[in-house]
Design a protein around this nucleic acid. Structure first.
Length: 288
DNA sequence: ACTCTTGTTAAAAC
DNA sequence: GGTTTTAACAAGAG
């Protein structure tokens, strides 16, 4: 389940690998992934990625000498980017191989890939087909960007504004924090972790959150996501990075997926309920 | 065979 | 009309 830290991890890795290299060939294996854009291959072929940006969980690729053209990529639940340097594939041993070296690419779940002139390839895999990679004009890209709320890791994050949103809404605090139009980047894992650290129950109605609780939520949302980025994201079910490696923040999760386990703070058995239509994990004692 | 998993959104309900 | 909830999407694990 890629959320902001996982998407940021992928963006950072790809920036070091695929920029400023001519796209020699584009292969679309599944039309749904490219939003049924039949011009996809011909539009992108021969171009070079000049940057990879991100807003929330949406990846934004820009092109050299093409100021009006962008690729918007969303991993949704099971999307993965893999990078492979075919010149480095060894047959006779030496160094140990990573998971991505062992996996054969393209694979059953590869939906499209970009071959670069230097014998490297960028693969987009997506088992459940919810993810997409689509062509966008600058206007379209800006419109997509504008739909996202501020990110908790932003240096100029306006906690007062978020508190204002809480005050005028009667949905649960979890649903509010999952709403990408209000705050962007949080998903099921980091909302549960943030609310545990803030000592707020996920099913609390948003307008009952006090200002000091709101400040804790802002602080811990930032902390949890920053720490996770440091550790390369969280691997819970299927997130692995562009080289096939797992994210190590999984070792630091305090509540997500830990129902039935003792709370690390008070020893109470952690519970799992359904809130905002999602599996929700919390400590009945620490969180009020 | 049936339930559960999630990010986003369209549709329904309020 | 704006807000909120629900269901749908897809495919696999258990």
């Amino acid at each position: 389940m890629p959320e902001l830290p996982e998407v940021e991890t992928v963006c950072r890795q790809l920036r070091t690998k695929v920029l400023n290299k001519k796209i020699h060939k584009v292969v679309v294996c599944h039309m749904k992934t490219v939003a049924h854009n039949s011009e996809f291959e011909s539009t992108v072929k021969s171009l070079e990625f000049s940057n990879i940006d991100r807003i929330g969980k949406l990846m934004i690729f820009s092109f050299k000498n093409k100021p009006d053209l962008f690729l918007l990529a969303h991993l949704k639940m099971t999307g993965q980017f893999f990078y492979r340097d075919h010149k480095e594939v060894v047959t006779g041993g030496g160094h140990s191989m990573t998971a991505a070296d062992i996996a054969v690419l393209p694979s059953r779940h590869t939906r499209l890939y970009f071959e670069f002139e230097d014998e490297t390839t960028l693969y987009f895999n997506d088992m459940r087909l919810f993810g997409y990679v689509k062509i966008a004009s600058k206007e379209h890209m800006l419109k997509a960007r504008a739909g996202y709320g501020q990110e908790p890791i932003a240096v100029d994050f306006d906690c007062e504004a978020l508190y204002g949103q809480m005050k005028r809404r009667r949905t649960t605090i979890k649903a509010l924090l999952l709403n990408q139009k209000i705050v962007s980047g949080l998903g099921n894992i980091y909302v549960d972790e943030t609310l545990f650290l803030s000592q707020v129950r996920p099913d609390r109605v948003a307008n009952t959150i006090t200002k000091s609780e709101a400040e804790l939520i802002c602080k811990f949302a930032c902390q949890v996501m920053s720490d996770s980025i440091t550790y390369g994201g969280t691997t819970f079910e299927n997130f692995i990075d562009t080289g096939g490696e797992q994210g190590n923040y999984s070792d630091y999760l305090k509540v997500f997926g830990k129902q039935g386990v003792e709370c690390s703070v008070c020893g109470t058995i952690l519970k799992k309920i359904k809130t905002a239509g999602r599996g929700t994990h919390y400590c009945p004692t620490c969180q009020i």
